[in-house]
Amino acid sequence: MQLFPCPFCGPRDETEFHYGGDAGNARPDGGDVPIDRWAGYLYLRSNPKGAAREIWVHMNCGEFFVMERDTLTHTVLSSAELGGEHAA
């Protein structure tokens, strides 16, 4: 078991959280988005070895937040609320 820090609730069991994707993977906007841009948004993932910035949601309180963690050591480096705008 691992504890993840919800910015609102504090440390909670990892099973209470759901992964929301890479932080900064903003949805393309507009009618003239090139097809490779859509493909990148939908299918390409950075999958880093080491430090990663990810969107997570705490399912119990509904808090969406950015968590920085190390995918190799599973160390959680930080977590911060999204605050309405998409995290860049």
Binding site: F8, C9, G10, P11, R12, D13, T15, E16, C61
Partner: peptide
């Protein structure tokens, strides 16, 4: 340990 939300699994 206190936690702001009473919603939990």
């Amino acid at each position: 340990q206190s936690s702001a939300s009473a919603a939990l699994s």
